[in-house]
């Protein structure tokens, strides 16, 4: 978190926000249970509803509890997570490619296009991962939004001490 966000007022505001998010998460859990208990849903619908609520909850945890909302200017974290996603998706794509088929949804054969798409993903994602890595590594300096000279000066000063 950058320095401007360290003021006592901001912390007080954060604490209120934390309670609010806690409430949202509890409410999300209750809604999930209530929907499951009261509504008679098929497995597919239940999966969509359950996972959507989980996604919303997860977004709140990452944005507020992990204060990613205020960290996103710090591009390193974003890079790390994006890279992870691509790397992971690429790995999974390769596995599916190697398997050559996908599980049968609802006991029906999957159209041929699915394994083909999976194979393409398996090729494209690791490739894109590699390109992104090279691009990033070839950037000479700071990814931080702050002007470059300022931290350099600080660094020099602290070295003198």
């Amino acid at each position: 978190m950058s320095d401007s966000h360290d003021s006592p007022n901001f912390i007080q505001y954060l604490i209120k926000l934390f309670y609010l998010v806690g409430g949202v998460l509890v409410a999300g859990t209750l809604i999930t249970v209530l929907i499951d208990v009261t509504l008679d849903m098929s497995l597919g619908i239940a999966a969509i509803v359950g996972l959507s609520i989980a996604l919303v909850k997860a977004a709140f945890v990452v944005a507020i509890f992990m204060h990613y909302k205020w960290d996103k200017k710090l591009i390193m974290i974003t890079w790390t997570m994006i890279m992870t996603f691509f790397f992971f998706a690429g790995m999974m794509g390769l596995i599916m490619w190697a398997e050559g088929d996908l599980p049968r949804w609802g006991r029906e054969e999957v159209p041929t296009i699915w394994p083909v798409l999976a194979s393409l993903l398996g090729l494209l994602l690791p490739a894109s991962f590699t390109i992104f890595t090279i691009k990033m590594l070839s950037q000479p300096t700071a990814v931080e939004a702050e002007p470059v000279p300022k931290p350099k000066a600080k660094r020099a000063a602290s070295k003198k001490k």
Binding site: I75, M76, M91, T141, V143, E144, A145
Partner: peptide, 25 residues
Amino acid sequence: VKPRPDTGLYNGKLGIWLFLASEVM
């Protein structure tokens, strides 16, 4: 304590995010 100029984060924070990235996998 102080952020590293090139990453913009103090080292512990970058470290834990890298660890979390491996945990995601």
